[in-house]
Structure formats: C-alpha cells, structure tokens
Design a protein around this nucleic acid. Sequence first.
DNA 1: CTTTTTTTTCATAACATTTTCACAATTTTG
DNA 2: CAAAATTGTGAAAATGTTATGAAAAAAAAG
Lengths: 222, 222
Amino acid sequence: MKVLLVEDEKLIRMFIVEYFNKQNVYVIEASDGYEALSLLDTSFDIVLLDIMMPGIDGYEVCKLIRQKSDIPILFISALSEDENKLKGYEVGADDFISKPFTPSLLYAKCCALLKRVQASSHSLNEGIIRIDEDTHEVFVNDQLIPLSHKEYTMLVYFIENKRKILSRDQLLDHIWGYDYYGDQRIVDTYVKKLRKKLLEASSYIQTVVKIGYMFDTKRKDI
Amino acid sequence: MKVLLVEDEKLIRMFIVEYFNKQNVYVIEASDGYEALSLLDTSFDIVLLDIMMPGIDGYEVCKLIRQKSDIPILFISALSEDENKLKGYEVGADDFISKPFTPSLLYAKCCALLKRVQASSHSLNEGIIRIDEDTHEVFVNDQLIPLSHKEYTMLVYFIENKRKILSRDQLLDHIWGYDYYGDQRIVDTYVKKLRKKLLEASSYIQTVVKIGYMFDTKRKDI
DNA sequence: CTTTTTTTTCATAACATTTTCACAATTTTG
DNA sequence: CAAAATTGTGAAAATGTTATGAAAAAAAAG
C-alpha cells in the first residue's frame, strides 16, 4: 500500500508515518496542498488529506485532485461538525476521520476504505461505450467488442482523459512506455484499429491535426 | 467583475448592489428568472441566483443556464437545509449562501468562487470569444469555430498579448519559429484567415500600419 | 513446432494545411 | 492630389499530415 499524507503539522505526520511503516505501508509526506498535487501520481492507493492547512485548504486540494483522479481520499478534520463533512463529500471525499485519533484507527479506516473501493466493481461509461474494468470487457451498444491488450489500454487512457487533446508522445509514453524506440506512427495504426472496432462510436476518437487525438462523445462537426 | 443578480425582492437587490458597486463590481439586476435568462450573455463572470422566486424558480433557471453555459452560479437560499443544497448541486450550482447574510460575506463568497473556477478551468475569454485550452476549441458567440493549428496558435498569442502591438517579426518568431525563412507576408495571410473565421469578432484584430497588428476587443474607430 | 493472434512496419492514397503570388484596396508621404 | 508604400484578398501550388490495407515480425497459444 502506498499512501500520500498531506498534513502541515510535522508532529502528526511523524506519528502516522511511524505507525504505518510498522504495518508495511509506504507513506509519502506533503506539508501543503501544492506539494501534494505535485507529488501525486497514479502509483498511490489512497490520499490522507488534512482540511485545515495554510495556503490552499484540503477542500480545494480535493477538488483539484478530483479533476483528474478517482483515487480514494480520506479527510482528516480537526472539527467533527457535520457541515464540514457535507462540504467534504461535495468536493469528492470518500471518508472522514476527526482529530484527535490514534494511528491505529486511521490505519483501520484506510483499510476499510480501500476494501470498499476495490469491492465496488469498476465500470466506465461514455456514450454508447461501456467498459468493465474487472473483466476488461468492452461493449458498444451492449455488443461485446473483443479488444487486444494495447487496444484496451488505449481506449481506457482516452476515456480517462476525455476532452483533453493527447499528443502522440503522450499516448506512446503511456501505452508503450517512455523507453519505446519504434515508429511513432504506431499510434495512428492503433487509432485505426480502435475506430474500426468501435463501430458507431468510432467518431468518439477525433483527430486533432498536427497535435494528436482527443476522445469526445460529442461530435465536433455539428 | 460583472455580476448578474437574480432576486425578486427589491430591497435585497439594493443592499447587494450598493455594496458591490463600492467594491467596483458591476451588477446587472433581474427580478425574475426569465429576465435573467434574457439578460445573460458571455460578458458576465458570475450569477447570483435566488432559489425561491415567483414564477420560474432558481433551480429551473440554473438548469436552463447550464444547458448552454458553465458560468459560475452561486445560489442564494432562504433555507440552510442540506436538502436544498443537494438539489442545487444536482442542477449545477457551484456554491451556496444562506439568508440572512451580509453583503460583505456574499462578496467574499463570490471572489472565492471566481478564484476557484479560474484556477481549475483552462479557458480564455475575450469579448465574444471563448477558448478551451484543453480541447483547443474556439467559440464565437457560443458557436464553435474550427481553426487550424497555426490559426489557433496565432489567436492564443494575440490574446495572451492583448492590447499590445505585435510586429510581423514577433508573430513570425513565435508562430513560425525564429528560423523560418519564408515570406513575411504569410502573417498577413493568417490574419486574413483568422478575421474571416472570427465573424463578428474579426475587428478584434486591428491593423497598426507600418508596425504590425494588435488584438483588442474595444473598437478603435469610435 | 505449428498455428493463431497481436504487434509493428511500410508504402501509398486521401485529406488538410501552409505558402506563394498577383492584383486590388487602402494608407502614407511628399 | 499623385506616387509610393503598405495591407487585404482569393486562388493556385506546394507541402505536410493522417488514414488505410497489406505484409513482416514478434509473441502467445495449442
């Protein structure tokens, strides 16, 4: 388990890190929101986020994270008021813990949250496309479309970044790895394959000349 | 800052307008939903929307606005019940304030909301032009205008340097690269293309004879 | 080891963008 | 006001980019 801990008070961080390390949990510390945002990447399993921090507060950090990620977020609140909780859920929090707490309680909450999230079967829906992330099955209008592994990875990456232009470089880095040395035009070939298989949803993958491609369920040409 | 205030009680409107004007904020008043919808255009920065109004209520107004605009909407609610908030967020509200409130609190909320929105959305707005920097989509009066890559780069460069005269050399260096060896008049050709596509906003790109061009939403000749 | 599937390369067709250019319109200069 | 310089414009030409089918190479399955 890899945790991002966002908390301005060093002492609290130390307590948590010490206990978590004992449980074999890897903790990365951030002392403010901006640091957290710069550290966060897809390798983390959960974010522990203090609400009251100098500078950008926990709510804002949460909102910014939610713009690009569904990672589980557990709020650490100094107050136990429901008002706070409400706002927390609004901005996309998954659970709460109120100060003061013991590290063991926090750890238990983390485990529970992760379990909960992992249990809820993940599925992506975009327009007429439905993806079951557990089985990697892709449906277009409820018709099963068999995709190869690279095709599947590309489609999911497109959908995770819908309405954002992705350059060939970005696609290459993410799907083939940054150390891929082959021809960049492989991306085109895979876009072709995907479009062909996606049938009526083929127009979801739009070409952005001179830059790359973009996934969008809304048609551009109307 | 330009605000659309939708509120049926004249007294409340007056309080707000008075305070906001003191803060140098321009407030346009609407006493009901339909008036608000007819007044709203892309020049506004935020909408303050009372929920309980005779005729069409705030929720409905919000829904209708959201059909064509992502403008920040702050709900003014007589009740502080969570139920209301929940429904508000469903129809697309960005934040809430409960009556009674002081004008200064409302002003603070407005500023916070605007800051939040501006931090999160990658969009440029100039007069009737709106640019989504994620998708590279350009709208004139909410009509999508497809631009080629160079046209887009030029428009963004103009807007980033609005009300600054840009020489052909500067434009060449920035858009074509300092090592471009072709004809300098290519700039003129692209200005022509841009103006044509920008329709009513074509006059935003002004010719500065013997020097270059300048982007300005205000007309020079009046 | 053979067959099948997937991945990659490549040549060419189809398409879109960029650039040039000649002349018209406008502005500046003397 | 006329000449000169500058800018506007449409269309053609040149260039660049993407789509596509087929074939080669690599990997996985049998």
